[in-house]
Write a protein that binds this DNA or RNA. Sequence first.
DNA 1: CTGGTTGCAAACGGTTTGCAAGGCA
DNA 2: TGCCTTGCAAACCGTTTGCAACCAG
Lengths: 142, 142
Amino acid sequence: MNHSETIIRRLQIQGERVTLVRRALLEILSAASSPFSAEELQTRLAARRIKINKTTAYRQLENLVRLAVLDEVRLGDRVVRYELASAEDSHHHHLICTACGKIEDVELPGDVSRYEKEIKRRKKFTVLRHSLEFFGLCKKCQ
Amino acid sequence: MNHSETIIRRLQIQGERVTLVRRALLEILSAASSPFSAEELQTRLAARRIKINKTTAYRQLENLVRLAVLDEVRLGDRVVRYELASAEDSHHHHLICTACGKIEDVELPGDVSRYEKEIKRRKKFTVLRHSLEFFGLCKKCQ
DNA sequence: CTGGTTGCAAACGGTTTGCAAGGCA
DNA sequence: TGCCTTGCAAACCGTTTGCAACCAG
């Protein structure tokens, strides 16, 4: 059983409808190696001969965030991207190549959470989440 | 001599025109304590009885980035904000209160650059800059 | 059946662009 | 005077919304 089927089963248990569109969409996204936008989702579905309206793409992505299947990823341009929600123990960040646009994941040792206590102490600010992206040149582009 | 006058002098030396609008704009921005958008700039100028078109706001901000007076700040919504360009040695990050929208600065000890070697080694990715924001609740809102 | 899902078209909102009028050097 | 700057209106583009038709359960 692949990942998309696991998710579909989970959704059914939660009483969510599993439409043709949603099924195709979950297959695409569970195979995706990096975050993708609504438009990219539409394109990838089209490549499988499945045409969906962009509104549907946006609404499905929104739904799947609500259902904790996806996480939003915002990389500084004005496009919202999505990726499979990560378990709490596998938090990662993104490397964005400014030359070719490629997005890679990276897990950092120790991670950023060590800063959060310091921020609490100095600023009395309670950190709930953080966002860390690295911009630069990927292996191919340098 | 205050900060905005220093900048104005610098621009004049570079052969840039110093118009009324640009002068007012530099006063506002050098007094700003946190990043602001084109619209906020317009509002603050209006409070000083200076009306500028939003197009002018956008173009001036763009100019001042080109002239290395301002840096862009992107916080994940789709608004571009700006702040005075920081010297290389005073790199900082932002704390964004998700309740009231307040934006604070924070400087982190050691900083994130320590990760960049690790990224180079593991991913062959050359980091040129990074972006780190913390979302949560400010002192007042928790 | 019936309430969630989909497609279409139009609206939205921050930003950008084309063009004519205005103002700094 | 000549070129940069400004204002206005319209375009742009990713995203959202209203509404009628559709379909999974």
